[in-house]
């Protein structure tokens, strides 16, 4: 009787082992081939206004949007990348031009932009971020705050060269 190369038992054992090591973080499948690019989120581009100006702060501030920008593949932090940010805040709706602003990443690929407090709109307290410049492919993110009382929100970009 021919033996199956993969029996149910061996599949369960090896599959379980992969899940266990992968789940513990020991197995990082993307590292060898490289860090995978961040896909755009559903609804991320909603109410986007291209070309938001680089600002020191959106409105009166009091809330911090933070995050990092890295290159897909080798994960190198990307400096000087323009990230556009907008949200429904205490100072305006998502569509309002004054709710939009942009900032640049520092030498470590980190960005931080102060903005007014985000408040729940359309059922969820959420923000929008965009990378939409030439060098890399466009990515739109829409992170949701865990609690509407939070005063920070973070989002991370891994960009694919265009």
């Amino acid at each position: 009787m021919p033996k199956a190369a993969v029996t149910r038992r061996s599949l369960l054992i090896s599959g379980g082992a992969v899940l266990a090591t992968g789940g513990s973080g020991l197995l990082v499948p993307a590292r060898a081939k490289g860090l995978a690019p961040t896909p755009s989120m559903r609804g991320g581009a909603n109410n986007y206004r291209a070309g938001a100006p680089i600002v020191d702060r959106i409105g009166g501030g009091g809330f911090w949007m933070t995050g990092t920008v890295r290159r897909a593949g080798d994960g190198v932090p990307l400096a000087g990348q323009r990230i556009q940010i907008w949200a429904h805040t205490t100072e305006g709706h998502e569509r309002d031009p004054h709710s939009h602003g942009a900032t640049l990443t520092d030498g470590n690929g980190v960005f931080r932009l102060e903005m007014p407090q985000i408040v729940p709109a359309f059922g969820q307290p959420h923000g929008h971020l965009a990378y939409d410049s030439e060098e890399f492919e466009t990515v739109f993110l829409r992170p949701v705050m865990r609690r509407s009382s939070d005063t920070t929100l973070e989002a991370h970009f891994v960009l694919q060269p265009a």
Partner: peptide, 23 residues
């Protein structure tokens, strides 16, 4: 009213592709 406030969010909801689970 929601459409006037944020057209893309309502279009997403009507097309069943909204990120929010309640739409």
């Amino acid at each position: 009213g929601l459409w006037m406030t944020s057209p893309p969010d309502v279009v997403d909801a009507l097309l069943f592709r909204s990120p929010t689970p309640f739409s």
